[in-house]
Design a binder for these strands. Structure first.
Lengths: 150, 150
DNA sequence: TATAATTACTATTAATTTAGTAGTCATTAT
DNA sequence: ATAATGACTACTAAATTAATAGTAATTATA
């Protein structure tokens, strides 16, 4: 149930750019160092994020990347789904496949995966990068902001 | 965020054995056909499940597998964790690593993964194979038992 | 206008994980 | 004895993920 390094890198980077929103560009180099991400790998991730409309860039000397839209207009869910692809634990747990289901036993299991998927979606679709920025800043100020949702 | 085929096969098989609890053994062959699982692969999965104490077997002619403990004594969570290993989306989202966290930005993201992990755990740790059997049987009787938890 | 710093793009390779296959041995009901 | 079954170990293949390499294009600025 792991997420890939690619997604991890992408999200960390988006958060970094969100922290820098409206403050100019950040170079790949700085982003790579800050996030401890292999430069060349990050380069590709950023190109992907650009295609997805999450970031934009300025080329040439003193160029770099910046968030293409306001942080409160990007949810974690959008970003994750874009980078990671479908996040259903089982492909067949998607609505369409689910409806076609004919094997009653495994269907009982699919219900579970569907529940897991729904629970996960609720978490990641309801938080924006603006909120993440708020939390990150709160932490920096020494107010730990643990979130236990039980 | 996918689960592996191995886990999928393991859970389907456990459910099948749970449906057959106290009704004797089921051969690998039957389990493989029923679950549409490659025989040799299932063989290995079953050996793993046996080491984990989930199933037991009877060797020789008319041998086969059976659940090693009552279905209401096995949660999905136990089985998944045993086959799949840790289910945290990020390894560093585990409690220990989490406490050591020093990078405030990525910590904000780790909070999220922790939430996802918690939400997932709540689903899979609170359902037993006995309950899955009940649901599977209900479906067979023509009472679809969709579970939407929103 | 030369230079250095930077993004853009494409291709390749390496590493890891996952999925599946093969073959031989051991056990047991009939 | 034999046929049907599980036990065990090793291997291979396929897919995915992670990372690297190299060259081209762009741009600030000295």
């Amino acid at each position: 149930m792991k997420i890939s390094y690619k997604s991890d890198y992408a999200l960390k980077t988006l958060l970094e750019l969100a922290l820098n929103y409206n403050k100019g560009v950040v170079s790949i180099n700085d982003l790579a160092k800050k996030g401890d991400i292999p430069y060349k790998f990050l380069e590709q991730v950023l190109l992907t994020l650009k295609k997805g409309g999450f970031v934009d860039s300025k080329r040439g000397m003193s160029g770099g990347y910046y968030l293409a839209k306001p942080p409160d207009n990007i949810t974690l869910g959008e970003a994750i789904r874009f980078i990671e692809g479908p996040i259903e634990p089982l492909i067949c747990a998607s609505k369409k496949r689910y409806d076609e289901c004919k094997d009653f036993n495994t269907c009982a299991l699919k219900d579970i995966w569907h529940q897991v998927y729904t629970a996960t979606s609720m978490v990641i679709d309801s938080i924006t990068f603006a909120e993440l920025v708020r939390r990150a800043k709160a932490k920096q100020k020494g107010f730990p902001n643990y979130v236990y949702t039980i």
